[in-house]
Design a protein around this nucleic acid. Structure first.
Lengths: 256, 256
DNA sequence: CGCCGCCTTGACCACCATCAAGTGGAGTGG
DNA sequence: CCACTCCACTTGATGGTGGTCAAGGCGGCG
């Protein structure tokens, strides 16, 4: 079981071997959550921070008329509510889209981490600022792109984000969400998502069957979607595999 | 000349009298910027943090095909690029929409503030997290609401945000932006913004002439827009005027 | 087998984009 | 004082993107 959190955070700061070990300890106590369950409701004041370690979840907001907007997809390594300690309450909900392995971290642990491990602290802030950058790109996506490019852009983003945590191959990944959920994320109706997907299949851009998405030509899809990964603020070259080999022993030495 | 920064940050933390004085010193050195000038370009790596003290600015992103999405309106008290120290480079641009009074703060000053004044540090993080919350609400707005409610929601948001920094009366404020800029913010064409505004005028919701917006019935507009200010995370009761009277003398005592 | 989610397809039309032309005020220079 | 320009706003005509409604197919599961 690899540590998606460490994989991700190492994009945002040069973590030491000890930092990696700390993070491995952090995610050792996990909880399984079934598919399509609420993790945190809007208005709630959680006293623990939640983290997705495996599976797929989402932020969302429902309006009074019942319409729903998905605000973000949370992939392994993403925090659900790192901000709530300062903002006081949640202005949106969090729910699983698939069965998930979640980690719950007490706020005191977070405070200990941020005050005693400056590089982890920096990496946590990096993560929340990247969340914000992704949100900005979603706004551009929904505000300015037509449906087909909009959908293509989402598929490109998920490819890259999943790759950084080891959840995607060069050109494919598991996309276990319904077309309705895609529509709620993109501001499109379910019917139009369906037609757009089929057009992309007919154009030879993708195949998508039984939650397996295969991008037949990644560069072509990126060009079609006008996708530029700069907004993800990833490290130019990510090769954390060397350091990770040292971690297991140290992790147990600290006290796992 | 009041301090919009302190007005705003006092929503996010219980600042002491000394904190207020610090903030007043901070904004004492200002710079005038003409209308429609770029402050920071996409990709840039600024070594100073920028802050709007008077006027109106915006975040924006332009796509390769020339379309533009405005990502946020920056009102007095708003930071332009508080995040860039951690993210490394700007993934979007900042430009003025009107003549602006800007403050430039060196990163070392920011670091000094955040390490020696914990309440200011907390207020700064509060501010960036609120920015993120506003971004989420914009995504809901563009993704789920039709044009007329979308526009109404923006007008409600600006009313509340300007009120917290003393830039709006109970039901009116100066809205010195073109209809094209509204369209770029809302994902609408300029023609449709025009028609939507006129429909709202005909419906007796607003008047807008020569950059003066008057909301004829605030509660009715908020209801029409499905506007709930919870996402702005404002203090329940904001009466900072009492504390602010003590600040001027202390400010000079510190060394203004 | 029958139910239930999810995907699919067709018909219809509304919202909103685009194109085009025209109005009107502010500023400039003759 | 009057052209002239420029820019923002306005209005009309037209059509496409994408929403809504409705029905049917299909696989999984109790």
């Amino acid at each position: 079981l690899k540590n998606a959190l460490a994989e991700k955070l190492s994009q945002g700061a040069n973590l030491t071997v000890e930092d990696h070990a700390r993070l491995d300890l952090l995610v050792s106590r996990t909880r399984q959550v079934a598919s399509h369950k609420n993790i945190i409701a809007e208005g709630q004041v959680p006293d623990e921070v939640h983290l997705v370690l495996e599976g797929l979840a989402c932020r969302f907001k429902v309006m009074k008329n019942g319409r729903r907007q998905i605000l973000a997809f949370l992939v392994p390594g993403d925090f659900c509510d790192l901000h709530v300690a300062i903002l006081g309450n949640m202005d949106h909900g969090i729910a699983t889209l698939t069965p998930c392995t979640m980690v719950e971290i007490s706020t005191t642990t977070v405070e200990e981490l941020t005050s005693n491990h400056p590089k982890i602290a920096r990496a946590l802030w990096w993560a929340t600022l990247v969340d914000e950058a992704v949100l900005r790109e979603w706004l551009v996506n929904i505000g300015q792109r037509p449906a087909n490019q909009r959908l293509a852009h989402l598929l490109c983003e998920l490819l890259v984000r999943l790759q950084t945590v080891g959840g995607a191959s060069d050109n494919s990944y598991s996309l276990p969400i319904t077309q309705e959920e895609m529509g709620d994320a993109l501001g499109l109706s379910i019917v139009h998502v369906n037609r757009t997907l089929q057009a992309m299949r007919r154009a030879g851009l993708i195949t998508l069957k039984n939650t397996l998405l295969v991008i037949k030509d990644v560069e072509r899809l990126k060009a079609f979607a006008d996708f530029d990964p700069a907004y993800l603020h990833l490290a130019p070259n990510s090769a954390p595999s060397a350091i990770r080999r040292q971690v297991a022993s140290i992790s147990s030495a600290i006290g796992g």
